[in-house]
Design a protein around this nucleic acid. Structure first.
Length: 421
DNA sequence: TCTGGGGTCCTAGGACCC
DNA sequence: TCTGGGGTCCTAGGACCC
């Protein structure tokens, strides 16, 4: 059996832990640049605020109902996530962290005769230790445990816990889950399935395999098996190393000058390089893209990207900058209002296995030492104090974050204080 | 009339996830 | 005025090889 534990409205719940006055009130958390609502409290959902709605479109609802609004505070959420996972690990040693707010647990080696009780115990412990409410779903496969988790949230009587461990519990769940709510079925496949008469997960289980294979490829076939209780998605206890790493942002304001776009690309390149070094990987290719704002119909549009192979796989900021700047020179066209750029490093491999280039002119050893020192210095300050010339911090394209809460758990100065009355 | 067969690698695009 | 960011996997089709 597999458990899926998922934090309820995670970002909102994190904000509430340090600001209890927000309990029972409508609260939302916005995406980068304060763009869209990406987390909503139940009260905010009840007001009709949908996932991904742009903030400017719900201005009126926010004002009218006094919705509390926050910018995303990933420093806080990452740390809270780590704490939640730690508590869960004490119950289930074999786990797979699936996202910032979700974790799978392998129950097969656990001696526990009442899985429903286990689920409730976990829920209670996480709440007591971290203040974060979670839901727990238990079933035979990952796909079914996702479904059980969703079902646990829906059914009030279950109190945030659902164990689809008996045939009755399983079929009740399948019958009341819409096909579009199955993990792995997106809007495209949902439409296709419904048009062909498959409306619930129970319908889908009975679908002919060849048809699914033809219309949804092997992905669909796997999904079908998972629904039948045959595990097809492996349990990955150790995090597989990344294959790509990307850093991209929309600008706080539109940008026209090449100088400013260069600064952004340089900063994103250096961020990719740092992530690479943290992974212990080197990249073999670099990809740079640049784009205008597609929502501004009145503006001329320009989207372009370029991928450059690196002569020698590297994670050196200096090396990567050389290529990303060259890529930008090839991409940039004056006369457009740019909204976003990004840098992606691709074809990653462990830094141990680097093949030296035949005509390699760079002193790798020296570069490595330099990067190591750079990371240490910047790491100890908690921000980039030492930077490359091209980076520079120009406020013009900085993120918009007007409703940011504090780093309550990671910065001593911002720790909550308890006052005596 | 009619233009081999089999394999690999790479890329772009589509679908999905949180 | 204002619309997130970071990933994965799969397939089809082209280039190239013998």
């Amino acid at each position: 059996m597999i458990a899926l534990i998922d934090c309820n409205n995670f970002y909102v719940s994190c904000e509430r832990v340090f600001n209890p006055a927000l309990m029972k009130k409508p609260v939302i958390v916005l995406s980068n640049n304060d763009g869209c609502a990406i987390a909503r409290s139940e009260e905010a959902k009840a007001l009709g605020i949908k996932m991904g709605t742009p903030a400017f479109m719900i201005k009126d609802v926010i004002r009218k109902h006094g919705v509390h609004v926050f910018s995303s505070n990933y420093t806080l959420y990452d740390d809270m996530s780590r704490r939640v996972m730690q508590v869960i690990n004490e119950f289930i040693p074999k786990t797979e962290v699936y996202s910032i707010d979700e974790i799978f647990g392998d129950l097969s080696e656990l001696v526990y005769n009442d899985l429903h009780q286990l689920a409730s115990d976990i829920r209670e412990a996480v709440m007591r230790c971290t203040g974060i409410p979670v839901s727990v779903g238990i079933a035979a496969t990952k796909t079914l445990s996702k479904m059980a988790n969703r079902f646990a949230k829906k059914t009030k009587a279950g109190e945030g816990v659902y164990a689809a461990v008996t045939p009755e519990a399983l079929s009740a769940m399948l019958a009341s889950t819409g096909v579009g709510d199955v993990w792995g079925v997106g809007p495209r496949y949902a439409k296709l399935l419904q048009e062909n008469g498959f409306h619930s997960a129970a319908d889908l289980v009975k679908a002919p395999e060849e048809w699914i294979r033809k219309k949804m490829s092997v992905v669909g076939q796997r999904l079908l098996n998972e629904l039948k209780g045959i595990p097809c998605i492996p349990f990955e206890e150790t995090v597989p190393s990344k294959k790509n790493i990307c850093t991209s942002r929309s600008f706080g304001k539109l940008i026209t000058s090449k100088r400013e776009v260069r600064q952004a690309v340089a900063t994103f390149t250096s961020s990719c390089a740092l992530k690479l070094r943290k992974e212990g990987s080197v990249a073999r290719k670099i990809h740079v893209f640049i784009q205008t704002n597609p929502h501004r119909r009145e503006d001329p549009q320009y989207f372009h990207s370029i991928t450059l192979p690196l002569e020698v796989p590297t994670s050196s900021t200096r090396e990567l900058l050389k290529y990303s700047m060259r890529a930008l020179d090839m991409l940039f066209k004056p006369g457009y209002n740019y909204m976003k750029t990004g840098v992606m490093v691709l074809d990653l491999q462990p830094s141990k296995q680097v093949q030296m280039g035949l005509f390699d002119q760079v002193d790798r050893r020296r570069d490595e030492k330099l990067m190591h020192t750079l990371d240490e210095v910047n790491g100890s300050f908690g921000k980039d104090v030492v930077r490359f010339g091209t980076q520079d911090f120009n406020k013009k394209w900085k993120l918009k974050q007007e409703h940011l809460s504090k780093a309550f758990t990671t910065r001593v100065k911002e720790m909550p204080k308890i006052k005596k009355k």
